[in-house]
Design a protein around this nucleic acid. Structure first.
Lengths: 414, 414
DNA sequence: GGCTTTTTTTCGAGCCTCAAAAAAATAGTG
DNA sequence: CACTATTTTTTTGAGGCTCGAAAAAAAGCC
């Protein structure tokens, strides 16, 4: 059951509040922080003095093109880029990329690699991941001891504790505890995140106006994935990363899905499903991976003239629409971001999608539902991983204060 | 955004913690409370002394059949039944019931009434509700000023702030702000709760072993409703009570649902849908309300011999199974409680339901999913409303302490 | 240069929680 | 029955935290 609040939790939480206010606002003054947190000026003053003294925040007098106002000018507080660093690892189909990011969120190094994820044996796949991380950590420009967190993102299902990949379309392998493997190898705390969840996290940081408390990020690519933010919190399943929108049932006993079952939304709206339908291939045919270029060509052809290609996109829209309708029955309508290569073909998908939604419980609000598109998912996933890792450092390492910290990050403290 | 913790929030939260520990555990000693909350003995001692002095808790030396132990015997703490009272109002098809419940959770008065909800005009329906509440409040045995909260439960969709009924199958009327109406009339804070959500709340109190952090309560009656608890919290939509499981789409463009749309789960599994199918009535026929007795007779006939009745239940099971499968794709499998008159026919539903689930994302865990049945939903709804109202009193009225309280409940304080 | 305005820091008061010690209440023991 | 052991509860003093008020700092304005 939930536990009482100790006296020292108070400081910890309010420190966390100040740090997150600075991360959100960029360069807020102490007065602004006091306003957003509702704490008194004296408290903010005391906490920020501590945080500056510990090297977590810095005063940024310099960069101000202050509107000339009367009174003592505000002193902006900023995250100290050198306070820590985090590392992101994104593993997707045939592609592995790593980035090192400073505490202020700037990329300071990166590396990418192509590999045949579909056929690599377990040891080799893990080995490649470890090797690329090791190379980045051995970079002489990087102070290894400042790396406080690794966040790895992968397309597929992860467990709800962000420790392991349970299943992924990019490899036949299952149940790889990447977080534990990375932690053991490098002695740096790590997590294993679901790609679509990270897309959602990134969208929230990119555009907090539009994506604030409730929204849906849907990946339209080889497969169909979803990241869901409800009431300001990332939604996950009880055991897994959850939100397997692509495997809600569209037509019981219908088209063959990559997951081996029948009638999933993905079996009508995934790249392979659109391709299969456009090419007149049977719905029972085994799914195959279609390259992004092929999908773009298909979309171009569909735009050109009415024909099986256009019908294929229409069917995809229908499946997505009924799926969203069912989802909206559960959570109520919310803004949607369509991400991935087929999001670039959303013009072909949208009409049928809206028509389908109109026939469902979400129908009454069909016009108020807005869709945004973003064709490139990889940058979003990396951004999401970075923000996730940085938030962890904010909340779990810097908020408790110096005394509670392990040696790994101690050196950044004054 | 989230707000900092003030110094006085601390006491408030820890008071709430102690009160909820007592409500959960029955008659815990101070030592037990210290153990479950993680707070020190001195803190618990100070807080419980306050709460006793304020008349919220009582020491219950008496009722102890203490296992003879050495040492100073523990003194059980209990909720003082006279500290407050709450009132529950449950409005369902043709039926209105009210109960007065003391602070310890015991029913101290109740009243029920049949009415023709389907044909009553707006003023009359509201008037009946107000009248029955007024009669209970005028009971000379009841100290009106001790009534701290009214919780009203209704079958149908409510808004996410628990203020209004938005839509209900028991009346053609829509958007009735019952919570505001009750508050204005009686000057007692009120909420308007969704029936299935209250079922879930009640199940959690009744059997915390089985229904703890993640479970699903499904109402199988005239319509199909759902109450969902995820990560220990009641799940609601972003605007409405949400969780409209019955209106997820089972077959796009399929059978006519009571909501006017086509292919909803309810259009295959609601009482009217089972009846329609068993009687060979068209799927396009307008839904009609079937009495409980008729449904029981139908189930008996289905058990007797194979025939259209049995097929009807099988089809209901299939719809529920695919719906649950889609739900499990989103939230992962969880224990399910089937409630309502058709839960008594769950033996007829279960085989097809399990078969359907096996074809979905939840399929891999099909055997670990367990179903419980409870044919009578009304007591559950009332219990849920009661616990909801009492928890509100615990958290919002008694936790902040005397000074923050309004006059309404002041008289119970020593 | 003095005055006004705004931001930030300092200081004392008031709470809260905690650990340790004291007090209370009972069972066992000779 | 007095005394000891054991367990629970209360008391007490210390240390921390936040807050409001006042002071200090840092600019523009006249």
């Amino acid at each position: 059951m939930s536990v009482g609040i100790r006296h020292d939790d108070l400081r910890r939480r309010n420190r966390a509040m100040v740090i997150s206010a600075v991360r959100r606002a960029g360069q807020p003054s102490r007065t602004e922080i006091a306003a957003t947190t509702g704490l008194s000026h004296s408290t903010i003053s005391a906490i920020s003095a501590d945080l500056i003294q510990e090297g977590i925040l810095t005063e940024s007098k310099a960069s101000e093109p202050t509107a000339l106002k009367r009174g003592r000018p505000q002193i902006g507080l900023a995250l100290n880029p050198e306070a820590a660093a985090v590392l992101t690892v994104v593993l997707s189909l045939n592609f592995l990329s790593v980035a090192v990011i400073d505490y202020a969120g700037q990329v300071i190094a990166e590396e990418q690699r192509r590999l045949d994820t579909l056929v690599m044996p377990r040891d080799e796949l893990i080995g490649e991941c470890l090797a690329i991380v090791r190379r980045r950590l051995q970079d002489p420009d990087l102070d290894v001891s400042s790396v406080a967190r690794i966040a790895m993102g992968i397309q597929g299902i992860t467990d709800s504790h962000s420790r392991a990949m349970l299943w992924s379309p990019i490899t036949p392998l299952t149940d790889i505890p990447f977080a534990d493997i990375l932690e053991r190898e490098f002695d740096i705390p790590a997590t294993m995140e679901n790609d679509c969840n990270m897309m959602a996290v990134a969208l929230r940081w990119r555009d907090p106006e539009r994506y604030r408390d409730n929204f849906i990020a849907i990946l339209l690519s080889h497969g169909i994935g979803m990241g869901l933010v409800l009431k300001g919190e990332l939604f996950t399943g009880t055991h897994s990363s959850g939100g397997e929108f692509g495997h809600m049932i569209h037509r019981p006993g219908g088209a063959l899905c990559r997951c081996g079952r029948r009638g999933c939304v993905e079996a009508y709206a995934g790249n392979y499903a659109i391709w299969r339908s456009a090419m007149g291939i049977s719905e029972d045919a085994a799914p195959i991976d279609i390259g992004d270029a092929d999908m773009r060509a298909l979309a171009a052809k569909a735009r050109e003239k009415d024909g099986p290609e256009r019908v294929a996109y229409r069917r995809a829209g229908e499946a997505l629409g009924f799926g969203l309708g069912s989802l909206f029955a559960l959570i109520d309508p919310a803004p949607v971001a369509m991400v991935g290569v087929s999001a670039a073909a959303f013009d072909l998908i949208e009409p049928a999608l809206r028509e389908a939604i109109a026939q469902t419980a979400g129908g009454q609000h069909t016009n108020s539902i807005s869709f945004d598109t973003e064709p490139n998912e990889l940058p979003l996933i990396r951004e999401g991983c970075a923000m996730r890792a940085l938030s962890f450092v904010d909340q779990e390492i810097f908020a408790p204060g110096v005394q509670a910290r392990s040696g790994a990050t101690g050196k950044n403290v004054a």
